[in-house]
């Protein structure tokens, strides 16, 4: 039976998809500012951040209204709790895209440190994670969600490689220290974007299966 509540949930889903799509775009654009040294795109990222912030408030208000008016239980309750948490994660990862963009703008004042290889790879992986985690959540797909969790290690490994390589670079070329440090922070921001996508994927698993997989909770004995 299609309920009025389902129509409202569809509205919520549309808002989250829009938010997530904007956040993905922001990550891509932040990388364009960084890699292509394209200063103009930084303004686009800032504009999109405002849209994501507005959507965050709209999603929270809608969740609050749906919880208050429908007092959902079971699958509906898990979906709405998941929406509240996912909403926060998307907003945070949009913030991280802004952080990357700000560092990219600072780096425009310095000559390129070295050719970009690993950082764009990290961005590609995290963008895929963001997209898939959100799809796993809205489409209640636990298999897709678990594939996102598996990818987080790939991002973490690359972050370590970037940090080590840049530390080595600083030793040989101390004059690049400021720029190289900014790049290390960019890698850290991308790693955190991966963490937020992981959170969203964990939410998705909870929504679909009712299992809490955070912090290896699956391995802990239950009462």
């Amino acid at each position: 039976m299609e309920r009025h509540f389902d129509e409202q949930l569809a509205g919520l889903k549309a808002l989250l998809i829009k938010m997530s799509a904007l956040a993905e775009l922001m990550i891509t654009d932040a990388l364009r500012v960084l890699v292509n040294r394209d200063a103009a795109t930084a303004e686009v990222v800032a504009r999109h951040e405002q849209l994501v912030n507005d959507l965050q408030i709209e999603v929270d208000e809608l969740c609050l209204t749906l919880i208050a008016t429908h007092q959902p239980v079971a699958g509906d309750l898990r979906y709405l709790l998941g929406a509240v948490k996912t909403n926060t994660d998307i907003e945070r990862l949009a913030d991280l895209a802004v952080n990357i963009c700000e560092k990219a703008v600072i780096l425009l004042n310095y000559p390129p440190v070295k050719p970009f290889v690993i950082i764009p790879e990290m961005a590609a992986i995290t963008n895929g994670m963001v997209k898939d985690s959100l799809h796993a959540y809205v489409n209640r797909d636990a298999t897709l969600a678990r594939s996102v969790l598996a990818r987080d290690d790939e991002v973490d490994n690359r972050k370590r490689r970037v940090t080590n390589e840049l530390a080595e670079h600083i030793r040989h070329f101390p004059e690049t220290t400021t720029a190289a440090l900014e790049l290390i922070l960019v890698a850290r921001d991308l790693e955190r974007i991966g963490d937020h996508a992981t959170n969203i994927a964990e939410n998705a698993i909870f929504v679909v299966q009712g299992k809490d997989v955070r912090h290896n909770a699956e391995l802990r004995p239950r009462e």
């Binding site: 309920r3 509540f5 239980v73 079971a74 898990r78």
Partner: peptide, 19 residues
């Protein structure tokens, strides 16, 4: 359990008002 993670989809459908 019944109102957070019901085991049977029919329970879920009933408590969420699908039928």
């Amino acid at each position: 359990q019944l109102f957070t993670v019901p085991r049977d989809t029919r329970t879920n459908d009933y408590v969420t008002g699908r039928f």
